[in-house]
Design a protein around this nucleic acid. Structure first.
Length: 913
DNA sequence: GAGCACTGC
């Protein structure tokens, strides 16, 4: 983050320069129109592409117009942390105000003061603030920036603010909402009657972007778009004038393989080495030219450099490429891809998981004489802006995560992008001068793209959002004014999960449940506590249970590590060179070894991948969480820093929810003891109850594809423990998993072994219990004062037989009869009445007991006062001390309490009436 | 015995 900021801010050299740049922004001409619209409307939608300056200028207009005087402040939300920070710096500089006045707030940090007038923050921060103060009384204006990106939080914020703004106006504390979008796709906001009854005005602002000429391919490669990208880059580099090239591909592996090919084709060596190479290459070229037939790439430069007619070129392209393509795809034939060091290309990979110091390279100018070429994934579309890009090569695809709504299985698929996305990518070529965008697909294919990408909220589970909303006392989540609502299946399964976790009250079982009733469950106190933890509900449940046996610090660490993605460095990606290959092999071996070490021994092995996480974080923190430690042990430094900050935040949250928890972040944390590991596994099971899998049984093993497979309640096909898992060879009978990812097979990730007998105990909501066992017979537990029994159960849907376990006797008349028996035997009060009894206590259980008025009288009394355990008996007694000893008919049981008395009293009263 | 885009609390 810091590196990016330095780079982002390096553009702001002097205030004068800034002011000059500022004056050129087209939005300045629109100030009056905008401010008038804001004055006259509660909500205004502002459309302006990147480069219009809306993010930096609109807050200043509002400030000048007095919206931040008299106490109120101007809030601006951004979908990314870097944007919140850099925008606050930028605006502070432009306005010549200190950071205490123009400030930012992100998840872990901020510089907000009492004097803050303009506050930039991430969208999640404002959502959390609504939890504390629903009316957001601090704010006079809220600006939702980048609303077109449709992140889940901006969508929810817009829904909430559509209600908050009128409420504020009614209260006489007027507030304004400004929604800013880079595209004109705003109908979801403006034409949505549930959101705004009167559509808010839409103001369009021109952008100061340079023209980008778009070139389509004549043909659209079906599979080999990386090969096509490679050829296109080569061509651009050979033929077109200077200017950076930005290439959009879909994943790390593609990025690295194209990088490798380009580096081979246009080797770049820094400094002297390079000039040496150049000379050598020139000599070699001369020789080769004499011995080899001239099918040369150089012939291309005969074409006009500004050639834009792709269709015409494509013909030549195809002829030429068909031959060479084969060679290129046959892999590493060093001789076939002829190196041309005379025109060096400075090739850099760029993707989100790349180490920040390597990412930062793209922001620096390329070495003299070399052209910059960045091979990127989607990060370059919105998150990072690379300076000096004149050419964009767009493969037209994106890798997206998909969730199966029924089974919850995740997978990654490469799909076509939307037209909006393609235009956004093209726009990256026109930041500093006119540019060109080469689309590796035909205009017809482009025409078939959807206009816009789907809103994120429709593409992912919403359990966390539903919990947040319930915590805001929005019970009927279906009625929430979503700009685009999630599917009802998604809402129902979210509600179901939250009920199972105990975060929502279970709806009454009797009668047919309407869809609405199932979606209107109120939040429980546990749910409130869970909503206070900024993690997924399953993990929040673990935190809520974490206090036993001193497990809280461990649970916090495990939850933090599970929340942060990819804590281990990936050494399986294609290497850039042979030496890098051997280097990576060595690192990988070390990483595998360390993971085995962190998995521990004895009990802790059963905690599986979660123990590996715990061990890794523990070891890393013990070593001071240094870059070097991470590097040497295969950990992603950025991930470890995020875990460290998240541990801090979760620790604070736990202490806030439970003031006597007294947890603190200990970077010298000792490994958990054997009994703590047992406890941790049970806590994890309680949180991941719907993520259980059972090893396929020998008798079920009919199909060889089930070998080493696991069965889950929701899937017909087997799932497997991922080969990188600590439990891959152990294959425990029962496991819980973090997620199922479908690749070549369905793999469970984040696996932890659990014991069968814990399941009915900790997850009764998922079990069907059979009648209490007859042997051993039900008994009275003197410690808890309750009637206990053994009960067998099966796991829901799959009917796995679970071992019989000790349970509270199930509700019903039988429970009262048993309690009466134990009571008469003197087990409940430790006093024996047997010598005063006419019948044996076991009479209570006889089928003919009803025929005896005395047994019936006792039973009725117990039932009417709900007494079937010691606690409720004592409570009933307390109600009326005088009647502790009562002889209930002369020759029957002695009944020692007011249960029967109050019962008789009631009856007498009724008789009198 | 493997192959994961991108974010926010």
């Amino acid at each position: 983050t810091c590196i990016w900021l330095l780079v982002l801010d390096s553009g702001c050299k002097s205030w004068c320069e800034l002011q000059e740049a500022r004056l050129r922004l087209p939005i300045l001409a629109e100030e009056q129109v905008i401010m008038e619209a804001v004055r006259e409307n509660e909500c205004v939608v502002l459309c302006g592409e990147t480069g219009s300056g809306k993010t930096t200028q609109v807050p200043q207009f509002l400030y000048e117009a007095g919206y931040a005087s008299s106490g109120g402040i101007i809030g601006v939300t951004e979908p990314r942390r870097v944007a919140a920070i850099s925008m606050s710096h930028r605006v502070a500089t432009e306005m010549n105000l200190p950071s205490g006045v123009v400030s930012y707030q992100i998840r872990y940090e901020g510089n907000v003061t009492e004097n803050t007038k303009i506050k930039f923050m991430t969208d999640g921060v404002l959502l959390k603030e609504i939890q504390k103060d629903f009316l957001l009384q601090k704010y006079r204006v809220v600006i939702i920036d980048e609303a077109h990106e449709r992140s889940v939080y901006t969508d929810i914020l817009i829904g909430l603010l559509s209600r908050i703004v009128p409420l504020r106006n009614k209260k006489g504390l007027p507030m304004k909402l400004i929604i800013m979008s880079a595209t004109l796709r705003v109908e979801d906001f403006t034409e949505n009657k549930r959101l705004f009854r009167t559509p808010p005005p839409v103001i369009k602002v021109e952008a100061r972007q340079f023209a980008v000429t778009v070139h389509f391919n004549k043909r659209t490669p079906v599979d080999n778009y990386t090969g096509e990208a490679f050829r296109k880059i080569c061509k651009i580099h050979r033929m077109l004038p200077p200017g950076g090239i930005l290439v959009f591909l879909t994943g790390q592996a593609e990025v690295h393989s194209v990088c490798r090919r380009l580096r081979k084709a246009f080797p770049y060596r820094p400094h002297r080495e390079h000039t040496e190479d150049l000379k050598k290459a020139k000599r070699a070229k001369k020789k080769k030219n004499m011995s080899l037939p001239r099918i040369n790439l150089d012939s291309y430069s005969a074409l006009p450099a500004d050639e834009g007619d792709e269709d015409r070129q494509a013909g030549i392209d195809d002829d030429y490429n068909e031959g060479s393509d084969l060679e290129l795809e046959l892999g590493d034939h060093p001789d076939k891809e002829k190196a041309d060091p005379s025109i060096p290309l400075y090739v850099l990979p760029l993707y989100s998981l790349l180490a920040p110091e390597l990412q930062a390279k793209v922001f620096h100018p390329p070495p003299a004489g070399a052209r910059l070429c960045v091979i990127a994934t989607n990060v370059a579309e919105t998150s990072l802006t690379i300076p000096g890009v004149k050419y964009v090569v767009d493969c037209g695809r994106v890798k997206k995560r998909f969730y199966d709504r029924v089974t919850g299985v995740s997978s990654f698929k490469v799909t076509w992008i939307s037209q909006a996305s393609a235009n956004q990518r093209a726009g990256r070529a026109g930041r500093t001068e006119p540019g060109h965008c080469y689309r590796l697909y035909s205009s017809a294919v482009f025409g078939d793209f959807s206009l816009f990408s789907e809103a994120e909220i429709t593409r992912r589970p919403v359990d966390d959002l539903v919990l947040q909303m319930k915590d805001l006392n929005i019970e009927k989540v279906v009625n929430f004014p979503f700009p685009t609502p999630p599917s009802s299946e998604a809402l129902i399964s979210a509600e179901q999960l939250l009920i199972s976790l105990g975060a929502l009250e279970e709806p009454p079982r009797h009668g047919r449940l309407t869809c609405l009733a199932r979606l209107s469950c109120p939040i429980t106190p546990l749910g409130r506590a869970m909503a206070a933890f900024p993690v997924a509900p399953r993990y929040a449940k673990m935190l809520a249970l974490g206090r036993q046996q001193g497990c809280m610090p461990y649970i916090i660490t495990i939850v933090a590590a599970m929340t942060v993605r990819e804590i281990f460095e990936d050494y399986d990606r294609p290497a850039g060179s042979e030496e890098e290959n051997t280097k990576m092999a060595g690192k990988k071996a070390r990483s595998v070894q360390m993971r085995r070490l962190w998995a521990g021994q004895g009990q802790s092995v059963q905690l599986g991948d979660l123990m590996v996480l715990l061990g890794a974080v523990g070891a890393c923190e013990f070593a001071g969480c240094t870059h070097q430690f991470c590097e040497e042990n295969g950990l992603r430094y950025k991930a470890m820093l995020e875990i460290r900050r998240l541990r801090g935040q979760l620790t604070n949250a736990v202490n806030a929810v439970c003031s006597d928890a007294g947890v603190y972040v200990d970077n010298q944390m000792a490994p958990p003891t054997e009994s703590q590991v047992l406890c941790l596994r049970q806590i994890v099971l309680a949180g991941l109850g719907d993520h259980i899998a059972r090893r396929v049984q020998a008798e079920e093993l009919l199909d060889p594809k089930w070998r080493n497979g696991y069965k889950t309640p929701l899937l017909d096909d087997p799932v497997f423990i991922h080969p990188s898992s600590a439990l891959h060879k152990t294959l425990p009978e029962f496991v819980v998993y973090q997620e199922i990812m479908e690749t070549t097979k369905m793999y469970m990730r984040g696996v932890c072994a659990v014991q069968a007998e814990w399941i009915p105990k900790l997850l009764p909501q998922y079990c069907h219990f059979s009648a209490p066992e007859e042997s051993p017979a039900p008994w009275f537990c003197p410690l808890s004062g309750r009637v206990k029994c053994h009960q067998q159960s099966t796991f829901y849907r799959v009917s796995w037989k679970l071992p019989a376990i000790e349970m509270d006797y199930p509700e019903g008349l039988e429970h009262y009869k048993l309690f009466a028996k134990f009571f008469l035997e003197g087990q409940v009060t430790f006093m024996s009445y047997s010598r005063c009894l006419l019948s044996s206590p076991s009479t209570m259980l006889k089928t003919w007991a009803k025929l005896q008025p005395r047994t019936e009288a006792l039973l009725t009394a117990l039932v009417s006062e709900n007494v079937n355990n010691r606690t409720s008996l004592e409570a009933a007694w307390k109600k009326d001390e005088r009647c502790k000893l009562v002889l209930c008919s002369r020759v029957t049981f002695i009944i020692l309490h007011n249960i029967s008395v109050s019962c008789f009293k009631k009856k007498n009263k009724e008789k009198k009436k």
